[in-house]
């Protein structure tokens, strides 16, 4: 039986692990490689690294991080942040990333998804979406709007329409990140996750708001997500990955328990 995945997200700034609260006030909380190894040994199913390094000349640090992670963890991992071209995507793939995440650059140039998907395959092309709850109106009938640049810029683009378009352009997986829930640790935005998961034929990773094991259970059942992304709740030591998996398995979800 296909299991539900627990995905840990590591925001990497200048080669260090950072954690943001509502996309502002980021602070460094350690070495990404050390964390990745720790989570891998504790049964994590997948890793995501977001490069939040401000300047592009430091991007090579990220390649070094990716190579080091690939030599020490043997589970799939993806990399996002600042991917603007097929060349960026290919470099990260070669360095050892299983998949790449595109976000803002794809909103500005939707065909970027298609080009990357053709070069490295749909299964390796993830569309990450930062989504803000808004009043449903003509431009955003779903009541959710895509925002970019780490949540700072509104785009007027409807989140549901963008998810479907992303799939049609060749994204093999979607990350649904709620800006409203991000960093709150009050739970995922279930209605949003479910709306998108039911509308597309590719797997959905729910992101933003995880604080308690119950939140993961809710988004993987009611929210119809294929995978749940966690950050603060494991980074700050409140929960171990293995504890989360045990909790979900005990509640009857298909979870990989042998590693």
């Amino acid at each position: 039986m296909l299991t539900k995945r627990i995905v840990a997200c590591l925001d990497v700034r200048d080669g260090k692990l950072a954690k943001s609260v509502k996309f502002v006030d980021t602070r460094d909380i350690g070495d990404p490689l050390e964390r990745a190894s720790l989570y891998y040994q504790d049964g994590l199913d997948e890793l995501v690294f977001y490069d939040i390094t401000a300047s592009s000349d430091r991007r090579n640090i990220m390649i070094d991080v990716v190579e080091a992670v690939a030599a020490r963890t043997f589970i799939p991992f993806s990399v996002g942040g600042g991917i603007r071209s097929v060349e960026d995507a290919t470099k990260l793939r070669l360095a050892g990333a299983e998949k790449v995440n595109v976000n803002s650059a794809a909103v500005q140039d939707p065909e970027l998804i298609q080009r990357i998907s053709q070069a490295i395959g749909a299964q390796s092309t993830i569309l990450s979406m930062d989504i803000l709850r808004v009043e449903a109106c003509e431009g955003t009938p779903s009541g959710y709007e895509i925002v970019i640049d780490g949540g700072r810029t509104r785009t007027g683009r409807d989140a549901l329409a963008w998810a479907k378009q992303g799939e049609a352009l060749g994204a093999g997986e979607l990350v649904v990140n709620s800006i409203d829930a991000d960093g709150t640790r009050d739970g995922y935005e279930i209605a949003l996750t479910r709306m998108i998961a039911e509308a597309v034929g590719v797997p959905v990773i729910a992101s933003g708001g995880a604080g308690k094991p119950e939140h993961l259970y809710a988004v993987l059942t009611e929210g119809k997500a294929d995978a749940a992304l966690v950050a603060s709740m494991v980074h700050f030591g409140d929960y171990k990955v293995s504890e989360l998996k045990r909790y979900l398995a005990d509640r009857g979800l298909p979870i990989r328990m042998c590693w």
Partner: peptide, 16 residues
Amino acid sequence: TPREHHIKVPHMGWNT
């Protein structure tokens, strides 16, 4: 060729 709507393609993840 999924018979049911909730079956997603690609088959991606950890399976027993």
